[in-house]
C-alpha cells in the first residue's frame, strides 16, 4: 500500500536562511487528521508548499501516494492561509469552487457535467450550496472559509491540506469547522497547520510540532519537551486552554 505522505530528510531555505531542517514524515492510510502546530514564522506554510510542489527542497524527497507532488495534483486539496483578499473580485461562489476541478478538466476544455456535479456536492458538504450565485465578497468570513474548503473538496482529494483554517473565525465557527474536518477525515487524510494551540482539540488523531524542525511521534500526545523546544518557552505559557490529555510529561510514548 502506498503511503499518503512520505517525506525524507527535507531541507528548505530562502536565500541563506534555512527554514526547514531535516524534516521527516510518514503517513499511512487511514491517516485521519494530523494537526501541526508551531509559532508564527515556524515554517508551517513553507512546509505545506513543499507538499504541494510549489517549493522545491534543496535536499530530500517528497512523495504523495508514491509520486512526486507535481504528479498527484488531482489527489490533493488545498485551503490556503487567509490572504488579504480582493473582496470586489468579480467571481461567484460557483465559479470559485469550479476552479477546484481544473486538475480533472484539463487545459482548454469546458467544465464537464461531472465537474459541475463535484462542485455541487462539495458546496453541499459545507452547506453553502444555496449561496452559489453570490459574489465571493458578499459572504461572511466563516462562509468564505467554507467556500474555500469546498473548492478544495471539488478536487475529490485523498489528501486535504489546510493552512490555519481557524484564523479569523469566532469560537463557534471554529467548532463547526472542526466538526466538518471530523467528518471529512473518514474519506481522506487531513493535515491542518495552525499556530493556535487551542485548535489542538479533541478532533485530531495525531499531532506534530514544527519550528524549523518537525517533532512527530505518530501519536495524539505531544511530549512537553517537544512543545517547549518548538515554542522555546515554558509550556505553562503556551498550553493555556489545551486539553490536558493532549500534553504528556516524561511519559516516553514516542
Amino acid at each position: 500500500m502506498e503511503k499518503v505522505v512520505e517525506i525524507k530528510d527535507v531541507w528548505v531555505r530562502y536565500g541563506n536562511q534555512v527554514i526547514l531542517e531535516s524534516v521527516n514524515l510518514e503517513l499511512a492510510e487511514p491517516a485521519g487528521l494530523l494537526g501541526i502546530i508551531g509559532p508564527n514564522g515556524g515554517g508551517k506554510t513553507t512546509f505545506l508548499k513543499v507538499l504541494l510542489g510549489l517549493l522545491k527542497p534543496y535536499r530530500g524527497s517528497v512523495k504523495l501516494f508514491g509520486k512526486p507532488p507535481e504528479k498527484s495534483r488531482d489527489l490533493v486539496g488545498y485551503v490556503p492561509q487567509y490572504k488579504r483578499f480582493d473582496f470586489d473580485f468579480p467571481i461567484s461562489v460557483w465559479e470559485v469552487v469550479l476552479t477546484g476541478r481544473m486538475s480533472h478538466t484539463g487545459f482548454l476544455k469546458k467544465y464537464s457535467e461531472e465537474d459541475k456535479k463535484a462542485a455541487e456536492e462539495a458546496l453541499k458538504t459545507v452547506e453553502m450550496f444555496q449561496y452559489k450565485d453570490r459574489q465571493i465578497g458578499q459572504l461572511s468570513g466563516g462562509q468564505r472559509q467554507r467556500v474555500f474548503i469546498a473548492r478544495a473538496l471539488a478536487t475529490n482529494p485523498k489528501l486535504l491540506l489546510l493552512d490555519e483554517p481557524n484564523s479569523g473565525l469566532d469560537p463557534h465557527m471554529q467548532d463547526e469547522l472542526y466538526r466538518l474536518l471530523d467528518r471529512l477525515k473518514k474519506d481522506m487524510a487531513v493535515i491542518m497547520v495552525t499556530h493556535d494551540l487551542s485548535a489542538v482539540s479533541v478532533y485530531v488523531d495525531r499531532i506534530a510540532c514544527l519550528n524549523r524542525k518537525l517533532h512527530y511521534h505518530n501519536s495524539r500526545e505531544i511530549p512537553v519537551e517537544d512543545l517547549e523546544a518548538t515554542y522555546q518557552c515554558p509550556v505553562e505559557l503556551i498550553a493555556h486552554g489545551v486539553p490536558h490529555r493532549v500534553l504528556e510529561r516524561h511519559n516516553g510514548n514516542s
Partner: peptide, 22 residues
C-alpha cells in the same frame, strides 16, 4: 474564448491555479 476559465482562475488565485496543475 479559448482560455476563459484559465484566465479567470489565474487572476483570482494564481497559487491555487498552479496547484491545480495549470
Amino acid at each position: 474564448y479559448l482560455f476563459y476559465k484559465e484566465f479567470l482562475a489565474l487572476c483570482f488565485d494564481e497559487e491555487f491555479t498552479t496547484v491545480q496543475g495549470v
